[in-house]
Structures are given as structure tokens and as C-alpha cells.
């Protein structure tokens, strides 16, 4: 099967895109372009008829949609149908926020059970519709800040186990600078492949390891 195109021309040419069913850790610092990478990937994957469950931990679903729109990505036609948001952020500011047809409001970063239940059920819905599914965690850093790391590892192990069984592709986005090296090391171990992003002198670069077509030296991403 063809990989999942990210929408970045030379990334896709050099790597064949992301492999289905694999678990990717997306590492980078604040300015490295992780969000830009994910948003473009979302656009490209949705237009190629994939379904996406987007786990959001650091902003509200309405902010996310605004960000898509401000980048010229028209997400609206996909909302609910192929794009579902699990919003683990909104309740922190507005405790009475409630669900709508495309965003499920979760209880917050400590309720990993609630997140795992909602993820299982959103995944089941998409898999039953015979759609290839991608789970995107934007981002893990917030879960790691609030919880004991061991608790998060256990959670990730569970989520990854389920995803593998169901043939789902997973992407974890992590802000590397926020965590001690052993945390980053463990996330690597849970993942199959690692994408590193960095910003240098105004240009963005990537590396990819753990897939059939690796790119082990930083290459410009545009």
C-alpha cells in the first residue's frame, strides 16, 4: 500500500510518506514546525480519504479549527465525517463545555481512562466504516506534565496495542525540550519510527528513522 502523504513534497519523495499501521513520534522544539507539519498532514490525509481522530491537549477545538482556517486549510467539510476531535483542553477553562457532532469534550489531562474510552469508540466507528484511521496526539507533552510518566507510558502502551490490532496509524507529537531525556527515550521505545524536526537560520529540516525508507541526515523540508 502507498504511504500516507504528508503534503511536503521532498519529505514525501524521500520517504514515500508515512507507513500505515506504524507508530510515529514527532519530536521537535517549540519553533520547529510540528504544528505546521501536522496540519498539512491532516489536510493531505483527509483529501486521500483517511479518517483522523485528533487528540487535542493544549488548545480548544474551536482554536484548532481557527488555526486550520487561518492557514487556508478548509477543514469544515470533513468535520464529524472523517475528522473528529477529542478535546482534552476546553474543560480546564470552561467546565460546562459540552460535545458537538465533531468534538468530544473530555475531562482533562488526568482522565486518561476517559481519553482511552473515547478513542476506542471513535476508532471503532471509523474502522466499522472501513476507513483507514490515523490517531494524532497533539500533543503528549501536556499529558506528561500532569501525570506520572509511568502512568502515561502505561496509557500509551495500551493505546498503541489497540491501534496495532485495529490497523491504525498513530502520531505522537512531543515538545522535546520540555522533558528529561529518559522520558524521550521511553517514548521512542514505544514508537516504531521517529520524525525529528528543527528550525535553523529560518529554514525547517527533518529526519526520519525507523521506517523502510529512512532519512538519517537532516534535510530541508519544503
Amino acid at each position: 500500500m502507498e504511504g500516507i502523504k504528508t503534503g511536503f513534497k521532498n519529505f514525501d519523495e524521500l520517504t514515500n510518506g508515512l507507513d500505515y499501521r506504524k507508530v510515529y513520534a514527532l519530536f521537535g522544539d517549540k519553533e520547529s514546525g510540528k504544528e505546521q507539519f501536522i496540519y498539512k498532514l491532516v489536510q493531505s490525509a483527509l483529501s486521500a480519504k483517511n479518517a483522523i481522530v485528533y487528540v487535542l491537549t493544549s488548545k480548544s477545538y474551536s482554536e484548532l479549527i481557527t488555526e486550520f482556517n487561518s492557514r487556508g486549510i478548509n477543514i469544515n467539510p470533513y468535520l464529524g465525517a472523517d475528522f473528529r476531535i477529542l478535546d482534552d483542553f476546553s474543560r480546564t477553562n470552561s467546565p460546562s463545555a459540552t460535545d458537538n457532532s465533531y468534538a468530544k469534550i473530555l475531562n482533562g489531562p488526568l482522565d486518561l481512562t476517559g481519553l482511552s474510552v473515547s478513542l476506542s469508540s471513535a476508532n471503532s466507528d471509523f474502522v466499522k466504516d472501513a476507513k483507514p484511521v490515523i490517531n494524532i496526539f497533539d500533543n503528549l507533552s501536556n499529558l506528561l506534565i500532569y501525570n506520572n510518566p509511568v502512568t502515561v507510558y502505561r496509557f500509551l502502551q495500551f493505546v498503541v496495542g489497540k491501534a496495532k490490532l485495529a490497523g491504525i496509524t498513530t502520531i505522537f507529537s512531543i515538545d522535546v525540550a520540555m522533558h528529561p531525556p529518559e522520558v524521550i527515550e521511553t517514548i521512542k521505545n514505544i514508537s516504531d519510527a521517529v520524525i525529528d524536526l528543527k528550525l535553523q537560520e529560518g529554514k525547517r529540516y527533518f529526519k526520519l528513522s525507523g521506517t523502510s525508507k529512512e532519512v538519517l541526515q537532516f534535510k530541508e523540508i519544503e
Binding site: T92, P95, A97, T98, L110, G114
Partner: peptide, 15 residues
């Protein structure tokens, strides 16, 4: 409650 806030919990119960 240690999983979520009282307000969020009560919202969920109500739903």
C-alpha cells in the same frame, strides 16, 4: 474527585 474538576464532573453527570 481526582480525575476532573467538580464542575466538569457535574456537567458530565447532567449529560
Amino acid at each position: 474527585l481526582n480525575r476532573t474538576s467538580p464542575q466538569s464532573y457535574l456537567t458530565e453527570m447532567k449529560e
